[in-house]
């Protein structure tokens, strides 16, 4: 195994050097989802997520990036309005865990 061309001097790592690994397998039967009607877009879940699995687009909460989510439920614990909840993996939610209407 040899990859000297891909290593910068000092082993400096830049964003995008490595593909993000799929961590979905860490979750046990449940994944986070958001009830849009309850969400106040406070972004606390984004601030507290240890795996950058909360997607923010143009400054607004846009759902979950499931491949990065390990199912730790910190987002659920930090949500002040109960908008984020764990649902079964097989639940018919949107690709980013969207439920109940449109994002604010």
């Amino acid at each position: 195994m040899s990859f000297p061309d891909t290593i910068r001097p000092g082993a400096l790592i830049r964003s995008g050097d490595q593909p993000s690994p799929d961590m979905s397998g860490w979750r046990v039967d449940r994944k986070p989802a958001v009830q849009w009607s309850l969400c106040v877009d406070c972004l606390l879940c984004w601030a507290f997520c240890p795996d950058s699995a909360v997607v923010v687009e143009s400054g607004h909460f846009a759902g979950f990036h499931y491949p990065a989510c390990k199912g730790c439920e910190i987002c659920v614990a930090t949500c002040p309005t109960g908008a984020v909840a764990m649902v079964p993996e097989t639940s018919p939610v949107g690709p980013r865990g969207e439920m109940g209407g449109e994002a604010r």
Binding site: F3, G10, A11, L12, I13, R14, S15
Partner: peptide, 12 residues
């Protein structure tokens, strides 16, 4: 942005 002084597994 960049990460300086990261952990490296044996191969790296």
């Amino acid at each position: 942005a960049g990460t300086y002084g990261a952990f490296a597994m044996p191969e790296h």
